[in-house]
């Protein structure tokens, strides 16, 4: 079960503070990285919501992210809508597509669920890759950022945009945490733990899973809209299944089913890629080896390990041993 423990709250505050301090001390390139981390953190949170807490391991979150980006681009460039309406469109588009995928795939499990999501994701990729309306393989340029000048914010300034994305990432975390603490989230964890029993207790499991997947897709769609505005350009590459794979790596590295880990994983992967790229252009190999090592060691991921050590520290105190039976994660 999910609990917003003091450790989690502390970690989130620390990460948020670090992001703000970094935003005001770094240059253009650092701000670009920060923006990327904040955006990917939102998708990783969305993925952890279904994979870590719902047991639905998805290989289509890259596609949901991409659908959000294309939805924003189409709404603003093709339809001439405003940025706000475009963002709403991205959330709705990602959510609707994800709900559909969830509804169709909810009855499959294990590797079949993974394959089903992979297939749907690649279907979207193939569609945008071949579609002349959306620019085909060239994608769509000329995307403008949301205009918040009324509120005194200039999102065309890279610091302003980085902070904007950071705030949205924080809101995404708050939303996910609230959802996981609610009856909806508790039940989702129940489904992961024992789906047939949840059904026997009277829950329409299929509807619940589809709703969870849809919510996750809406968050991924929001991130897609931010990514489209970040680079001011969308391309089918956003939807490719390897993007989904990288998102899964972030969640695993940070700690599956910890929520904070998703944010941490996004940060670590983006910065590792960037740092490794300074020495060699073979970051793929480094990331691949790290991933293999993490999984082989039966790893809990970075934040999972922190929570584990923290829990052990707590258990050593002369308190009743009952704390041992209520781990904070999962």
């Amino acid at each position: 079960m999910f609990h917003q423990t003091p450790l989690k709250t502390g970690a989130v505050l620390l990460l948020a503070t670090a992001a703000v301090v970094y935003a005001f001390t770094t240059g253009f390139f650092g701000l670009e990285l920060l923006t990327e981390v904040a955006i990917l953190a939102i998708v990783a949170i969305a993925l952890d919501l279904v994979a870590g807490y719902g047991g639905m391991v998805s290989l289509c979150h890259g596609a949901l992210y991409g659908v959000g980006a294309y939805a924003f681009a189409s709404a603003t460039v093709l339809l001439g809508w405003g940025g706000g309406a475009g963002m709403a469109m991205a959330v709705a588009g990602g959510g609707a597509f994800a709900w559909l995928i969830g509804a169709v795939s909810a009855r499959t499990h294990g590797i079949f669920f993974i394959m089903a999501t992979l297939a749907f994701g690649q279907m979207a990729y193939a569609y945008f890759f071949d579609s002349p309306l959306f620019g085909g393989s060239d994608g769509m340029p000329g995307i403008a950022r949301l205009d918040l000048s009324g509120a005194g914010l200039d999102l065309n300034d890279s610091r302003g945009y980085a902070l904007f994305c950071t705030v949205l990432a924080l809101l995404a975390y708050a939303l996910a945490a609230t959802l996981l603490r609610s009856g909806f989230g508790r039940t989702l964890v129940g489904i992961r733990a024992n789906e047939p029993r949840m059904r026997a207790l009277g829950l329409p499991v299929w509807r619940h899973k589809a709703a969870a997947f849809g919510t996750s897709g809406a968050l991924a769609g929001l991130a897609g809209a931010l990514a489209a505005q970040h680079t001011m350009y969308v391309s089918p590459g956003l939807l490719h299944w390897t993007v989904s794979g990288e998102l899964l790596i972030m969640v695993i590295l940070g700690g599956l089913g910890t929520l904070v880990g998703a944010v941490l994983g996004a940060g670590v992967l983006v910065f590792v890629k960037h740092e490794v790229a300074r020495f060699t252009d073979h970051w793929h190999m480094v990331v691949g080896l790290v991933l293999i090592a993490t999984v082989l060691s039966g790893g809990r991921g970075i934040f999972g390990q922190i929570e584990f050590l923290w829990g052990r520290r707590g258990a050593r105190r002369p308190e009743p041993a009952a704390t041992e039976g209520s781990p904070d994660h999962a």
Binding site: M1, T178, S182, G183, F184, R186, T187, A193, L201, G202
Partner: peptide
Amino acid sequence: FAGLTVHENLALSAACAQGKATALLADS
């Protein structure tokens, strides 16, 4: 429900019966 506490197990069942299993804000 493996991995969960006795309280969580019983609460999953009770929440389901009392229509709290899909509450979006309140902790069931």
